[in-house]
Computed example of a mutant assay.
Amino acid sequence: MTYVPLELTDLALAAVLLIANGVVSFWFRLGLERSLAISALRMVLQLSVVALALRFIFALNSPLWTALFAVFMAVAAGYEVVSRQERRMGGWIATALGAGAPFFAGLLATLFATALVIGPDPWYAPRYVLPIFGMMLGNALSGTSLVLDSMTSASVRERAAIEARLALGAGRYEAFDGVLRRALTTGLMPIVTAMATTGVVALPGMMTGQILAGIDPVSAAKYQVMIMFLIAGATGAAVVAAGLGSVLLLTDERYRLRVDRLSPKQT
Score class of each variant (00 low, 15 high):
Val156Lys: 09
Ser142Thr: 14
Glu158Met: 08
Glu158Arg: 14
Ile118His: 02
Leu137Ile: 12
Ala154Tyr: 05
Gly106Glu: 03
Ala125Asp: 13
Leu111Ile: 04
Gly134Phe: 02
Leu130Gln: 00
Pro102Ala: 05
Leu116Ile: 14
Asp149Ser: 14
Met151Val: 05
Arg127Cys: 01
Phe112Tyr: 12
Ala115Leu: 13
Trp123Lys: 02
Gly119Met: 07
Thr114Tyr: 07
Val129Leu: 04
Ser145Tyr: 04
Leu108Asn: 01
Gly91Lys: 11
Ile132Arg: 00
Ala99Thr: 07
Ala96Asn: 10
Met135Asn: 11
Val147His: 00
Met135Leu: 10
Gly98Trp: 10
Met89Leu: 15
Pro131Lys: 00
Met136Asp: 00
Gly138Asn: 07
Pro122Thr: 06
Leu107Glu: 07
Ala140Trp: 01
Ser155Val: 01
Met136Thr: 02
Leu130Arg: 01
Ala105Glu: 07
Leu97Tyr: 12
Asp149Thr: 01
Leu108His: 03
Phe112Pro: 00
Arg88Leu: 12
Ile93Pro: 04
Leu137Val: 08
Gly98Glu: 12
Val117Cys: 02
Val82Ala: 15
Gly106Pro: 02
Gly98Ala: 10
Gly143Asn: 03
Pro131Thr: 01
Pro122Val: 03
Asp121His: 05
Met135Lys: 04
Arg88Val: 15
Glu86Arg: 15
Pro122Asn: 07
Val82Pro: 01
Leu108Tyr: 08
Leu146Thr: 02
Asp149Ile: 00
Leu148Asn: 06
Leu137Met: 14
Phe104Lys: 10
Arg88Trp: 09
Gly90Lys: 12
Gly106Ser: 02
Ala115Thr: 11
Asp121Glu: 12
Ala140Ile: 04
Val147Leu: 04
Ile93Val: 14
Leu141Met: 14
Gln85Ala: 14
Glu80Ala: 14
Leu146Trp: 00
Val81Glu: 10
Ala140Thr: 06
Ala115Lys: 05
Met89Asp: 05
Asp121Arg: 09
Asp149Met: 00
Leu141Cys: 11
Glu158Thr: 01
Leu148Val: 09
Met151Phe: 03
Pro131Gly: 02
Ile118Trp: 06
Tyr79Pro: 09
Glu158Asn: 10
Leu97Arg: 05
Phe133Trp: 03
Ser145Glu: 07
Ser153Phe: 09
Gly98Asp: 06
Arg87Ala: 10
Gly98Asn: 09
Thr152Tyr: 08
Gly134Asn: 04
Gly106Ala: 07
Ala101Arg: 04
Gln85Asn: 13
Leu116Met: 12
